[in-house]
Amino acid sequence: MKHKIIKVIKIIMIIIVSFIALLFVLFFRPNLSIERLENTYFTEHSSYIDITVPSLDNEELDIRLHYQDLGNPTNEVVVLLHGAFASSHTFIPWAEKLIEENYRVILIDLPYHGLSGGFSDHVTSLRRSSYAVKALLDSLEIASLYIGGNSMGGGVSWYFTGAFHDVYFDVKGLILIDSIYPSTPSQRTDQFALLRHPVISNIASRMTPRFLLKSILEGIYGSASTLEKETLDRYYNLLRKEGNRQAILRNTSELLIFEDLLDLLANIHEDDIPVLIMWGEEDSWIPVDTVLLFEDVLPEAVIIIYEGLGHVPMEENPLLTVENLIMFLNE
Results as ranks from 00 to 15, higher is better:
Asp271Glu: 15
Met13Thr: 14
Glu35Gly: 09
Asp178Phe: 02
Ile63Tyr: 09
Leu261Pro: 13
Thr184His: 05
Glu259Lys: 00
Asn72Met: 01
Leu212His: 10
Arg104Cys: 02
Leu238Gly: 13
Pro287Arg: 04
Phe192Trp: 14
Asp62Val: 06
Val291Phe: 07
Leu37Tyr: 14
Asn251Thr: 09
Leu255Asn: 14
Ala84Asp: 07
Thr161His: 00
Ser186Lys: 08
Asp166Ala: 11
Gly114Glu: 15
Lys134Ser: 15
Glu230Ser: 13
Leu22Phe: 15
Val156Asp: 01
Glu141Met: 06
Ser253Phe: 15
Lys241Ala: 14
Ala301Pro: 08
Asn102Phe: 02
Ser55Met: 02
Phe211Met: 07
Asp296Glu: 07
Asp233Thr: 08
Leu262Asp: 09
Asn317Tyr: 09
Val199Thr: 11
Leu137Ser: 05
Val167His: 13
Leu217Met: 13
Ser186Trp: 06
Ile304Val: 07
Ile6Gln: 03
Arg64Trp: 05
Gln68Asp: 14
Leu195Ala: 06
Val199Gln: 10
Tyr112Cys: 09
Pro182Tyr: 02
Leu329Cys: 02
Tyr103Ala: 04
Leu65Asp: 02
Asn39Ala: 06
Glu101Ser: 05
Leu176Ala: 01
Leu213Arg: 05
Thr208Pro: 02
Asp69Thr: 01
Leu213Phe: 11
Ser284Asn: 06
Glu230Ile: 08
Thr90Val: 12
Ile220Lys: 05
Gly114Arg: 14
Gln246Met: 09
Asp170Lys: 13
Leu325Val: 12
Arg234Asn: 03
Asp283Tyr: 08
Phe258Pro: 03
Asn244His: 00
Leu110Pro: 03
Leu309Thr: 02
Asp109Met: 11
His82Tyr: 04
Gly148Asn: 06
Tyr112Ser: 13
Asp271Cys: 10
Ile273Asp: 09
Ser87Cys: 07
Ala163Asn: 11
Leu298Ile: 01
Thr290Asp: 10
Glu141Arg: 08
Ser215Glu: 07
Leu22Val: 13
Phe294Asp: 01
Ile11Arg: 06
Lys241Cys: 07
His122Met: 13
Pro209Gln: 03
His45Thr: 15
Val312Tyr: 03
Arg210Lys: 06
Val322Thr: 10
Arg250Leu: 11
Ile34Pro: 03
Val171Asp: 02
Tyr48Asp: 10
Gly83Cys: 09
Asp289Lys: 14
Arg128Trp: 00
Pro318His: 15
Lys2Asp: 04
Ile304Tyr: 02
Gly162His: 08
Glu38Asp: 10
Gly117Cys: 04
Asp62Cys: 09
Asp233Lys: 14
Phe85Glu: 03
Gly222Cys: 00
Ile147Tyr: 03
Leu276Trp: 07
Glu101Gly: 00
Leu256Cys: 04
Val297Ser: 04
Pro182Asp: 00
Ile277Thr: 06
Arg128Thr: 03
Leu264Lys: 09
Arg245Ala: 05
Thr231Ser: 05
